Amino acid sequence: MDFIQGLDPSKLVLAETVLSFALSPFSAPPYNLAIFLFGTYAQENTDGVQSLRTFTGLLGASAVYDIVWMINNEQNSFVKFLTFILLLLKIPTFLAFGMALRQRGVQFGGLGGPDLSGPTVWSMPGGFTSGGRDGYQTVDEERPNHTSRPPRPPAAGPPVPAAQPPQPPLASGGYQSG
């Protein structure tokens, strides 16, 4: 762990960004450049822990995709070697960003799933949140005794059929004219 703590995450991300940019014109995984550009932002953003957590998760998942990419796609041997080097660099970078998250007091979501009790980024429309908003009733609140709509008028008896206009008599026979 001392080796991982001694690594500089910003230099690792910069090296991987440059390497993925150099591989981008060739038959290489196209998502690596976007992930490492986002990693540059996440590493420099000192306020946002969520972006650092997102980058760390994307980095770990992209390592699996790199293996699948190298198996399924034909590459030049030099490009394949550089893609493999990029894959190997992802391991210490993932560990360094995991340590950075731990130092900031954030744990990376384990197998138990995300922490749903923490602060949310968005809320359900219509006030289906625990705090309610804009006068909407929340799911947790009890229904008040009064209703917001006026009561319906009592239903009248069965409807009275309207009078039918008289029908002309049917002709009994073949063809009649006028």
Rank of each mutant, 00 (worst) to 15 (best):
F97L: 09
Q75A: 02
I91G: 10
F94T: 00
I67A: 13
S77C: 07
I67N: 12
R102V: 02
F97P: 05
G105S: 14
D66A: 08
V64D: 15
Q75F: 00
L82T: 08
Q103C: 04
L86F: 05
L86V: 03
I91T: 14
Q107H: 13
W69L: 05
F97T: 01
W69I: 01
I71T: 14
R104Y: 08
E74G: 07
V79E: 08
T83M: 04
A100Q: 11
Q75H: 09
V79L: 09
N76R: 09
M70N: 07
M99G: 03
R104D: 07
L101Q: 05
A100E: 12
V64C: 12
V64Q: 15
D66C: 09
L101P: 05
I71L: 14
L95E: 11
M99C: 08
I85G: 10
L87Q: 00
I85V: 11
M70L: 10
R104L: 03
I71Y: 12
N73W: 13
K80C: 03
L87G: 00
P92K: 02
P92V: 07
I67R: 07
V68F: 15
M70Q: 05
Q107P: 06
N73H: 14
V79S: 01
L88G: 06
V64P: 15
M70E: 09
L87T: 00
Y65E: 02
G98S: 15
F94E: 01
L101H: 06
T83I: 04
L88H: 13
A96N: 01
T93K: 01
T93D: 11
R104N: 03
T83Q: 01
L86Y: 03
L87I: 02
N76C: 02
M99D: 14
N72C: 00
N72T: 00
L89A: 07
F81C: 06
N73A: 04
A100K: 12
L95R: 11
I67D: 15
K90R: 11
V106I: 12
I85N: 02
F78R: 03
V106D: 06
T83F: 08
I85P: 05
Y65A: 04
T83L: 08
T93I: 01
A96W: 06
L86D: 02
W69V: 04
K80N: 02
R102Q: 12
I85Y: 12
Q103W: 09
I67P: 08
A96E: 09
W69Q: 04
V68A: 15
Q107M: 05
Q75V: 02
L82Y: 11
L95G: 07
E74M: 07
V68L: 14
K90I: 10
T83R: 05
T83A: 00
F81V: 04
S77N: 13
L89Q: 07
N72M: 13
R104H: 06
A96M: 10
F84L: 09
K80Y: 10
Q103M: 10
R102I: 01
L87P: 10
F97R: 04
A96Y: 05
P92C: 02
L82V: 01
L82A: 01
I85F: 11
A100P: 11
W69Y: 13
L89W: 13
L82I: 08
